[in-house]
Computed example of a mutant assay.
Amino acid sequence: MILKTTTAALLAGLCLSGAASAQEYSFRFQSSDPAGNPNFIFQQGWTETVTEMTGGKVSIELLPVGSIVDYKETPDAIAAGIIDGHITDTSYFAGRDPAFGLIANPVGAWSDPAQMIDFVENGGGKELMNELINPYGLEFIGVSTPGLEAFVSKVPLEGVADLQGVKVRSPEGLIANVFAAAGANPVNLPASEVYTSLDKGVIDAADYSVFSVNQDTGMNEIAKHPVYPGFHSLPLVEVSMNKAKWDALPAEIQDQLKASVKAFQQTQVTTLKERDLEAVGKAEAEGITIHNWSDEERAKFRAIAQEQWAGVAEGSPMAQKVYDTLTAYLKDKGLLQ
C-alpha cells in the first residue's frame, strides 16, 4: 500500500534509526470488520506501519470480527486480557452508555471526515473518549473513519424540504429519529434488502454506504439522484487497547503508536475519498444526477438533528457532556447556530 507524502513524513520522522530491533511487544487486536472488507485491509496496513515505525519492536496481530468474541464484547475481552485491543465502530457500545452512540455518529454533524477528526484530536473528543473507555480498562489511541456516507435517492433532493414524505431506509435509533424529525418516513430494513426495495418502490431513498460502494453495487443505477457529499452519517472508528498495557509502554512507543494510527487514518480517508471521486465521474458519465447540498441546507439538517442529540444527552451524564462539548465545537466552527 502506497502511503501519501504526509504519511511518509510521519514514518520517516518516527521510525527508529538503524536496523530493526528485536520484537519487544506483541499484541492481539480484534476488528469489527470481516476479513477481505476494504476497511479491514486498511487496518492490516496499519499493523505493518506499526512494525515499521517502531523498528520491529511492536508486533500486532489483527483478527477479523468475531474471531475471539462478539463485536459488542471486545471492551470486556480487552479488560480481561483475552485480547489486547480493538479497531471498532464506537457506536456498537451505545447500549452501555448513550454517550458512545452520540460521539460515534452524531447524525448530521459532519460534512467531511476532516471535521470529525479535528473534533476528536483538537476539540475535546479524545478526552471524552478516554473518559468513556478508561472505566472499562481501555486507553484511546486514535481515530479513523471510512468517510462520509453518500445518500441514495430515486427522487431529487436539493435540501431538507425535499425530504418531506420520502420513504427512507435507515437503522432504528438516532438516525431514524433525525430523518423523522426532518419530515421523512423512516423504514427499517436490513442492508440486504435495500436494492430490491428501491427497485420495487418500497422505499424512495436509503442510508447505505459511501458513494463508491453505492456505485459498485448498482444502487445509483436504480436511484439516479444521489446526494454527494452526504449530509447524515460519518462513523467514528476507534483504535484502543488495554490501559494497563498502554501505561506500561515507554513514552517513545506510545508516541509511535499514536503516529501509526494517524498514518492509517490519513491513508484510509484519502484513498476512499479518491475512490469516491472516481465513482462520481463514472456515475455522471452514465447520466446520474448528483446533488450537493448547500452549506445552508446542511445547517438546517444539523439544527434538526441537534434536537435529537439533546434527547440522547438526557440518557446519562456522559451523554450530556458529549452533547455540550460537541455543540460548543460546532458553534465555534460556525457549523451550528
Rank of each mutant, 00 (worst) to 15 (best):
S111Y: 05
Q256Y: 01
R275P: 01
Q43C: 03
M219I: 08
E24T: 11
L326I: 10
L249G: 09
E73W: 04
F27M: 08
F231T: 03
G13S: 10
N177H: 08
M318S: 07
D247W: 06
N242L: 11
Q266E: 15
A77Q: 13
N220G: 09
E274F: 02
Y25G: 04
N292G: 10
S170E: 11
P190I: 07
V202R: 13
P75A: 13
P75S: 15
T6S: 13
G45A: 06
Q44I: 07
T145H: 01
K273E: 15
S316C: 10
G18T: 05
F301S: 00
F29L: 12
I133W: 04
A114Q: 07
T217R: 09
T49F: 03
P317V: 07
A9I: 07
D112V: 03
V194L: 09
G147Y: 02
V239R: 00
V312H: 04
S144F: 00
V261K: 01
V168H: 00
R169F: 02
Q268R: 13
A19S: 13
K4Y: 12
E61D: 15
E139A: 14
M219P: 03
I82E: 15
Q164Y: 05
W46R: 00
K243R: 15
V69W: 08
G230L: 01
V213I: 15
G45R: 05
G18M: 05
T47M: 06
K4T: 03
E61P: 04
L14W: 07
A12T: 06
A80E: 15
F140H: 05
D89T: 08
Y195R: 13
I141F: 01
E131G: 10
I222V: 11
L11Y: 05
L16N: 12
Y208L: 11
S32K: 05
K72D: 14
Q115S: 00
Y323W: 12
P75T: 13
P226I: 04
Q115R: 01
G311E: 14
V322A: 10
A285T: 11
F301A: 08
N134K: 09
D89S: 08
P135S: 08
P98C: 13
